[in-house]
Design a protein around this nucleic acid. Sequence first.
DNA 1: CTTGATATTGAGAATCATATTCAAATAAAG
DNA 2: CTTTATTTGAATATGATTCTCAATATCAAG
Lengths: 144, 144
Amino acid sequence: MDNSKEKLKFETYLTDKNLKHTEQRVHIMDIFSSAGKHLTAEEIYLAVRKKHPGIGYATVYRTLKLLCEAGICRELTCEDGIKRYEYQSQDEHHDHLICTKCGVFVEVVDPEIEKLQERLFKLNGFYPERHRMELYGICKKCSK
Amino acid sequence: MDNSKEKLKFETYLTDKNLKHTEQRVHIMDIFSSAGKHLTAEEIYLAVRKKHPGIGYATVYRTLKLLCEAGICRELTCEDGIKRYEYQSQDEHHDHLICTKCGVFVEVVDPEIEKLQERLFKLNGFYPERHRMELYGICKKCSK
DNA sequence: CTTGATATTGAGAATCATATTCAAATAAAG
DNA sequence: CTTTATTTGAATATGATTCTCAATATCAAG
Ligand SMILES: [Zn+2]
Ligand SMILES: [Zn+2]
Ligand SMILES: [Zn+2]
Ligand SMILES: [Zn+2]
């Protein structure tokens, strides 16, 4: 996956905040873009460790927080209570279909639902900020 | 709030599973129906303690699990990672509008959204099981 | 009302994910 | 190269939830 755009975004973010451009931060970004989406901190930690055994958990958590702040990564609190991180720029919203057997995440957006959600906010006098929608079921592969 | 229906449901559940009808279990149910909805385990623990100081955390957690199994209570995993429990029979589904300032929960159901969610499951080859939708924003009171 | 089998309790310890502390290492500016 | 502020990893702390276990309570049978 080409992650040059995100790399630039991260570098810009670090520079702007007077933070340093370290190896570890780059390593974590790299693994993130190659090892898939919707990863737990542990999965990221283990993946980074394979190539860079010295890295510590604290650095992974700190870097994930930074990536989220920079808008490169999104944190999902799933039903099991474990946070998952997906590598993605903030502006492209999507929701999830999740298989309860194999755990696969499918990303979906339904513009009609999004519109109705806005209506729900308005109907209840809320100023809308964000939402999350998770659809749990059994995927095609697992229901065979 | 009249919770005789739920009490009967719980008693039946306990009897069916050869479990015992203890004071503590009744106390937790009672607080639950009087102290509001969408409570954390801690809030429930503290509320029960006011009337029944001897009760322990373990009993609260165990009873909440039982109530969920009995279909009297639903567990919500919120974005802060803390589980909340709402006292309610299983069959009445609803989603939530949540104020990010004051934390108020408003229960909503939009039949059109529910239909479109079913369509999303089908479109992606998923057998539907359940879903959760949380809309985060600022409520009327807080935006004044 | 006993008795005895079984379930339940509360205190405390254990667990798990995540956050914090701090001395040593490193990046970046001069 | 020096200086200075930031970052790192190891270890420790935290906070929510679960487990362990000895003591206690429930409930059915006698
Ligand atoms: Zn959406
Ligand atoms: Zn996603
Ligand atoms: Zn719904
Ligand atoms: Zn609710």
